[in-house]
Simulated assay, not measured.
Amino acid sequence: MAHLTKRQHYVPVTYLESWAGSSGRVALHDLEGNKCIHTAPENALAISWYYEEDPTSPDNRVEAILSAAEGKAATSLRKLIAASSAFSPQEVARNLNRTLTVEDETALKEFACYQYLRVPGAIEQKAFELQTTSLTEEEKRRGLNPGYFTESGFDYVLPRFRSMNSIFYVSEGTEFITSDWPCFDISDSDFAPALGEEVGVNPGVVTYCPLAPRITVLLVHREFSGGTKKAPRGSAMPMTNQLVRNQNALVIQRAVRWVVASKDEPFIFKAAGKRVQES
């Protein structure tokens, strides 16, 4: 057991490092405690033996799968971050449109798919959705085990993520924030989309995932128009500060408890106080 990972992150360290400043720490906003904690990414958003199907006999099997997936996405994430560090939003968008490969897009979709599923918030939502099903309590318990849920859910949902078009947005200044539920789907309906069922199927459902402080991705159905025209595949474009703030409000709304930024952001607690509590 000496070589097993006990503290298992449901949001990857390599991802959180993008929000770490020169001090190497992220600003972790606790929406329950109404306070901000500065901590190293490796100390954030982790639960002991989280992915183990039997915590009394851990084997790190799912942890190893996720580590491999994170490594696969890391190169593409580094490309995005490097591109965003020294140019205007327009220049970053043009550069990404030239250099982002199909392989990069695929790796980032897989990363987003895992982040859509592997977090406690997603499992809580699915538990709520299963309340009226005919599954036994034992079947629910098994199906909602984080390791089993993440692995089986990924196989089920990934083809839907792959079928969607990616639109990368580059902030003109205001930073994107992230949370303990980095990737989530939304629609213009009064009801949240059924987890894993409508994404990539319902043209009105889009998936949002901040990738770094200056770059986020929106995954849209191939028939999604956004009120104008069909979204091009793998496109990148600038986003105004006001629109970034609007996106950040969605992140705060969907967060379970923790919102991550590169520095203390008082607006996070102000916005959290207005959150709509789902029953």
Rank of each mutant, 00 (worst) to 15 (best):
A2K: 14
Q8H: 09
Q8N: 11
Y10R: 03
V13L: 03
Y15C: 09
Y15T: 05
W19Q: 07
W19E: 04
A20G: 05
S23K: 14
G24Y: 11
G24T: 12
R25E: 15
L28G: 02
H29Y: 09
L31C: 05
E32L: 08
E32F: 02
G33M: 12
G33H: 13
K35W: 04
P41R: 11
P41K: 12
N43A: 12
W49H: 14
Y50V: 07
Y50Q: 03
E53C: 09
E53Y: 02
P55G: 08
T56G: 11
S57H: 14
P58E: 01
V62N: 02
V62S: 03
V62Y: 09
L66A: 00
S67H: 12
S67Y: 04
A68W: 08
A73G: 06
S76P: 00
L80T: 01
I81S: 12
A83R: 06
S85M: 10
A86R: 08
S88W: 00
D104M: 09
E105M: 15
T106H: 13
C113K: 01
Y114V: 01
Y114S: 00
Y116F: 14
L117M: 06
P120D: 12
Q125L: 14
Q125F: 04
K126Q: 10
A127F: 08
A127H: 03
F128Y: 13
Q131E: 13
E138V: 10
K140R: 15
K140E: 02
R142N: 10
P146A: 03
G147N: 09
G147Y: 06
G147F: 03
F149E: 05
T150C: 04
S152W: 05
D155V: 08
Y156N: 09
V157P: 05
L158K: 12
L158R: 11
P159N: 10
R160T: 01
S163M: 10
I167R: 15
F168A: 00
Y169F: 14
E175P: 12
E175I: 02
E175M: 09
P182S: 13
P182Q: 07
F184K: 04
D185C: 10
S187F: 00
S189K: 14
S189I: 00
A192W: 08
L195W: 08
E197F: 01
V201Q: 04
N202G: 12
G204W: 08
V206N: 05
T207N: 02
Y208W: 03
C209H: 12
P210F: 01
L211W: 08
P213Q: 06
P213D: 08
R214G: 04
L218W: 07
V220K: 01
V220T: 15
H221F: 04
R222M: 06
F224N: 05
S225F: 03
G227A: 09
T228N: 11
A231N: 10
R233G: 00
S235H: 04
T240A: 11
T240F: 02
N241I: 07
V244K: 05
A249G: 14
V251G: 00
R254S: 03
V256W: 04
V256E: 07
W258S: 10
S262A: 13
K263G: 06
K263E: 15
P266L: 08
A271Q: 13
A271E: 15
K274G: 07
V276Y: 14
E278V: 15
